[in-house]
Simulated assay, not measured.
Amino acid sequence: MENILKNCAMSMETRLRVLNCYIYPVLMYGSEAWSITTDLRKRLESCEMWFLRRMMRIPWTDRVSNEDVLIRAGVCRKLLKGIRIRQMRFMGHVLRKGGLENLALPGKIEGRRSRGRKRVTWLASIAEWIRNRGENTKEVELLNMAIDRELWHNMIAKVS
């Protein structure tokens, strides 16, 4: 019996390694340019939980909470956090590089906007995430911080 339990634990470890090495990178491909809205955030979180439930063979009819699944797997949510870190690194890279991307990043392009509610911009979604993590900085301050590489890497480490 102990041998079976040992093999199951080894199997779960292997599954988590496959998830982190093969599945997440494919899922996060191009995520540096995503504006993460509430709907997209919910979809990403549910996708992450679906992967864990499938790996642990927990059917949705068992009514096991997400927190219990995370505890059983011995992991924490890291898909959304990984995407945000990639976005922040990309932001620093683009701002230090200069060029056309640097002009488009703040979203100050001339022209008329379409009707309806303003869309969530890429920079605004990153700034909101940073504010939720405890840093009280504005979008303009983020742009200025990203230009200094050392300061920006410290900021990424602090919010992640």
Rank of each mutant, 00 (worst) to 15 (best):
M1Q: 01
N3A: 10
I4S: 03
L5N: 14
C8D: 07
M10S: 12
E13C: 13
R15K: 14
R15S: 14
V18A: 06
L19K: 01
N20R: 08
I23V: 11
I23A: 06
P25L: 09
L27T: 04
M28C: 12
Y29F: 15
G30M: 07
I36A: 11
I36P: 00
T37S: 12
T38Q: 04
L40P: 01
K42Q: 15
L44D: 01
S46Q: 05
L52P: 01
R54A: 14
R57Y: 12
P59K: 02
W60L: 12
D62N: 09
S65V: 15
L70I: 13
I71L: 10
V75G: 07
K78W: 07
L80W: 13
I83S: 04
I85K: 06
I85S: 04
M88A: 04
F90H: 13
G92Y: 09
H93L: 07
H93P: 06
H93C: 07
H93M: 09
V94I: 08
E101A: 15
E101H: 14
N102A: 12
A104I: 09
P106D: 02
P106K: 02
G107N: 09
G111C: 12
R112P: 03
S114D: 11
G116Y: 02
R119A: 08
L123F: 01
L123A: 13
I126E: 03
A127L: 05
A127R: 08
I130P: 00
E135K: 05
N136T: 02
T137C: 06
V140E: 12
E141K: 03
L143G: 07
L143Y: 04
N144M: 08
D148F: 05
E150A: 07
N154T: 06
K158H: 04
S160K: 09
